[in-house]
Design a protein around this nucleic acid. Structure first.
Length: 279
DNA sequence: GCCCAGGGAATCG
DNA sequence: CGATTCCATGGG
């Protein structure tokens, strides 16, 4: 990876770094493409605009210090994805997936934000999830520039179901409040959970209402940097049974979560590969 | 095990 | 166009 300091910010020249695959693959909900092709969003209370340039990806108006201390970690830019791919099992559908989704990176998101975001994501579609999270931030988050930060556990813990009516998240409101109360009181310590053996971490997360196996796996993978976590939604279950019969999440190794992201996005973008197949 | 609980996007007829 | 399907979890 090469980092250039430019008058407009920081330009990153790196293999395996594609904004569309990284920001529009179902792992995060606060970045969107603007009509001019740039990407804008908020992470870690910091708004960010990104642009594809001839010589790399521009992090607009970002200092070298901010890039090194935050965005470099957030975008997982110090990880060698080619090396990780070389450790994957040799399988034609996995090669198709890694070719198609080339450039995806697993974002190192905030655990609390990931917890609430993936509770909201259950039984839901991406455009609507984005709308609900946007309303959650606008109504209960602190303003940062033209944007809003993700609300803190304390800010949500003092609300009731009626207060959350404005975000129109339906039956998930009670789940959000249960998570906020448990995290705010310290009954759930996300930092501690992030370091537990994965079996214990899964169990601890599922003590929160609205967190089942799938949501827990998403929190571990996207919010806690646990790259062995392997969320199994309907698309991944379909992929496992049709494309990888006999395989388990463990078959993909210690970076199974990254393999999962390649496969998931490939399947979502090419659903016809499952035609004439049910289950 | 079965149904339902928001709601909006996607897909179908 | 309207009708149907999709979606992860908990509770009855």
């Amino acid at each position: 990876m090469k980092v250039h300091v430019d008058k407009n910010g920081i330009i990153v020249e790196a293999d395996d770094f594609n904004l569309e695959h990284t920001l529009d693959c179902g792992q995060c909900f606060r970045f969107s493409m603007r009509p001019d092709g740039s990407w804008h969003g908020v992470a870690g209370n910091k708004p960010l605009t990104l642009r594809n340039m001839e010589n790399g990806i521009l992090f607009e108006n970002v200092s070298l210090e901010e890039f090194n201390s935050f965005w470099r970690v957030y975008f997982d830019l110090d990880r060698d994805y080619a090396e990780i791919r070389s450790q994957f099992p040799d399988h034609p559908a996995l090669r198709n997936s890694t070719d198609f989704t080339y450039g995806v990176r697993i974002l190192r998101q905030d655990a609390w934000e990931a917890l609430i975001s993936f509770i909201i994501s259950q039984n839901n579609n991406v455009p609507r999830i984005k709308g609900i999270i946007d309303r959650l931030c606008r109504n209960f988050g602190e303003p940062v520039g033209q944007d809003y930060a993700f609300p803190s556990p304390a800010a949500l813990a003092k609300l009731n179901v009626e207060d959350l009516g404005v975000i129109r998240c339906g039956f998930r409101a009670a789940y959000i409040l249960d998570a906020a109360k448990k995290v705010n009181s310290g009954e759930i310590d996300l930092n501690e959970i992030s370091k537990m053996p994965i079996v214990d971490a899964r169990k601890a997360l599922q003590a929160i209402k609205g967190v089942g196996p799938k949501v827990a796996e998403c929190v571990l993978l996207y919010g806690m940097g646990r790259l062995e976590a392997f969320p199994l939604d309907v698309w991944m279950k379909r992929a496992m049974s049709h494309l990888f019969p006999g395989y388990t999440p463990e078959s993909f190794g210690k970076y199974a979560g990254i393999a999962q992201q390649y496969i998931f996005h490939y399947c979502r973008c090419n659903p016809w590969i499952f035609e004439n197949n049910n289950d």
